[in-house]
């Protein structure tokens, strides 16, 4: 069923994101994160697997509450107290960092090899510490520099790339605008040059022009440092500014993953198609659609396909959970109709 050409050496750069793991810098296997609540465990991340090639950006999209931020935090092991289940594998350049102790993870992985720019990061900066000290801190803590002077000069370099004026370095966070604070938060994540950076809704709280400026900055970072990003967002349109691959999440699960060019032209999963149809376009006329109903509860999600009761294309098979199927072009979707399509294409 899985048709993947493993010898695609030549066009690894363009194809690697979709199906093969050969060049994956990052790979999740069956990651689960459940939270305890009074009325039962919330299955916020329920068996998510995907891989991401070096230098690419994966946009993780989906409606609010589908588990995107939880997935981001699960990757960085930044967990709240009420964790019910936390398991699966997180491969970073071949090693499963899930097997590391908390102490080892903190010393060797978080901020060093993987970093997170959390949702509303710009409001999370420390108000009484100068911006330069906050950006330089990880370098000093993890002893990546000989002295403070070197840490500051590394911070300057990052600032330049992010378009932060140098004199902002010795200011306090509250003296900066929202856009500038968000850049400072991104600088903190970048300064160690981690192998993977997770950006959780990096522009959602910002104004349109500021949002655009920040997306420009992220593009430059991506091109200059060949950074690997996971961009978490509910905004499919803005995600296209940075995405090489797109993963769609619904009710705690991944329902589609595809190369961005294929995805934006023609999403596969019925949920993705509806989601795309609800996004207004400025330059093209289209009839906007919406998805009736609501996503299921994550405390007691349906046994079969979780989108089934809102899906116009539902049929008997949807009562059973569909597998994640890969088409020959590398697109993956968790839907029985796609499974049928895959079989037809093979026949």
């Amino acid at each position: 069923m899985m048709a993947v050409n493993a010898n695609s050496n030549a066009n690894a750069k363009t194809n690697a994101g979709a199906g093969t793991d050969a060049y994956a810098i990052f790979r999740l296997e069956n990651l689960q994160l459940y939270f305890n609540t009074r009325i039962g465990p919330v299955q916020a991340v329920d068996g998510v697997s995907f891989s991401l090639a070096s230098g690419r950006t994966l946009a993780l999209v989906g409606e609010s509450g589908c588990g995107k931020s939880s997935l981001g935090r699960a990757i960085l092991r930044l967990l709240p107290r009420n964790v019910h289940t936390y398991k699966g594998s997180i491969f970073l350049n071949g090693t499963d960092v899930m097997t590391y102790s908390n102490e080892r993870f903190r010393r060797q992985v978080r901020w060093v090899r993987m970093a997170l720019v959390p949702q509303a990061a710009m409001n999370a900066l420390n108000p009484v510490v100068k911006v330069e000290d906050q950006v330089a801190e990880p370098l000093l803590v993890h002893q990546r520099v000989k002295n403070k002077a070197e840490a500051y000069s590394r911070a300057y370099e990052i600032f330049k790339v992010l378009g932060l004026p140098q004199d902002f370095l010795n200011r306090y966070a509250f003296e900066l605008s929202g856009g500038m604070r968000q850049r400072a938060a991104i600088a903190m994540a970048l300064v160690m040059h981690p192998e993977l950076i997770v950006l959780d809704e990096p522009t959602s709280a910002l104004d349109l022009l500021t949002q655009s400026n920040i997306m420009n900055v992220l593009k430059k970072v991506k091109w200059e440092f060949k950074s690997t990003f996971i961009l978490i967002t509910h905004d499919i349109a803005t995600a296209s500014e940075l995405a090489d691959d797109v993963a769609v999440m619904y009710a705690g699960q991944l329902v589609e993953k595809a190369d961005a060019r294929l995805f934006y032209d023609d999403p596969l999963h019925p949920y993705s198609r509806k989601l795309m149809a609800s996004v207004p376009t400025l330059r093209k006329d289209k009839k906007l659609e919406f998805i009736p109903g609501q996503p299921p509860s994550l405390i007691n999600p349906p046994k079969g396909c979780r989108f089934a009761d809102r899906c116009e294309l539902r049929h008997e098979r949807c009562a059973a959970e569909p597998p994640m199927v890969t088409l020959p072009d590398g697109r993956q979707a968790k839907c029985w109709l796609v499974e049928q399509k895959a079989r037809e294409q093979h026949a």
Binding site: T57, G163, L209, Q211, K284
Partner: peptide, 26 residues
Amino acid sequence: QALLTAISDPDAKNADHIKEVPPGEP
């Protein structure tokens, strides 16, 4: 004009280029 430029339509080609938007704040 800047507002219209800044708005992204969902299109994978957006990732290929930098947008010309004015810097600064209101």
